[in-house]
Amino acid sequence: MSLEWVTRILSEYWTMFLRGAGITLLISIIGTVIGSLIGLCIGVIRTMPTPERGIKRISLKVVNALLASYIEFFRGTPMIVQAMVIFYGTAMAFNIHMDRLFAAIFIVSINTGAYMAEIVRGGIISVDRGQFEAAHAIGMNHLETMLNVVLPQAIRNILPATGNEFVINIKDTSVLNVISVTELYFQTKSVAGNNFRYFEAFFVACIIYFIMTFTVTRILRHLERKMDGPESYTLNQMQVAAPEDMFRLGNPN
């Protein structure tokens, strides 16, 4: 390895690396967020109690079957192949050329959605039955129970798994170079090809990928700890409620 080449590549092509890293982050952030939202929606639908009879029961079953096939299909095929099928497929079938970046985000989103759906479902099921019961007893329906009680807890439970998906997405966007998205791997390939310095260029990419995933992992760990809060409650003596406290109560959280 030649350190000289590494510094030379860095000083000459740092904007390309930076732009590539930016695109990689953009695709994986948006993909993870949209994928998580898809996962949340599907998780809520798939945990709905089945109505006793009638049209509602049948429609829920149909929807569940469709969602199950979506999950199975996207989890069961490689993202690199999905990318080719979707990108070239839409071009052939509808004669539309998807914007490459849009296509990339689209593919990562639905792929992540398929994984997150199962993760969310697991997260919802792992919330104590008593939480559902208390929410129902107070008069909440399924959606209200989910939004106000269960999902906040499920999301906390699945945060590590979601972080994991995010990290996987940062790494796996590299396969999207097959549809020529200018993410980090694609840029590195260009840099390497221009100079015939494959090792040095990819060594730089390697470091950048690691910095990105490591930072994300740290941030999420910090977030988890913050969400958990302290184990014990320190009594604030000033909190002994008097009517004037109601002013303060107006803006907690």
Binding site: D128, Q131, E133, A134, A137, P152, Q153
Partner: peptide, 11 residues
């Protein structure tokens, strides 16, 4: 309703 296991909303 008040439950044996309290079931306060943990969040």
């Amino acid at each position: 309703m008040v439950f044996q296991q309290f079931n306060l909303f943990n969040n």
